[in-house]
Amino acid sequence: MTGPVPGEHERQSVSRPFLAALHPTTDVTPEPATSDEPDAVRPYFVTQGRVHDDLSGFETVYSLTPGGAAGLDQLSFEHRDIAALCRQPQSVVEISALLKLPLGVTTVLTRDLATQGYLTASQPVADPASDPSLIMRLINAVHAL
């Protein structure tokens, strides 16, 4: 899995020959900055400066263990907020969005809490695209929407 990443090569690549002809001028509108960005300082203080550059597995679902529920009072601040939120199973991205914590910070804190036994992790399916029965479950669920 070491394919080139977009941006590592020239954008006007030879693989899309119709690009230049159809659109001689490229007007790229930048993604606007969001107004309610998380506090840039506080979350990194909580992680003691640790951030994860590798954010893979951000869909990992965490849930509170019975021991974690009993020991919730021993936690404070963001750790406690996260553990309490995981009474209902939540993915790292949901925790990040709901508590307005950057994804890298949330990744660190959820792993901490799992290591300490407060949370249990439900990892993503390793190779879902090679499991026909899993794909059939998804098809049935989408049909039923």
């Binding site: 021991g67 009993a70 020991g71 199973p89 036994g117 407060y118």
Partner: peptide, 8 residues
């Protein structure tokens, strides 16, 4: 945690 249950 002192308790050792890993069950959700």
């Amino acid at each position: 945690l002192s308790t050792h249950s890993e069950q959700p």
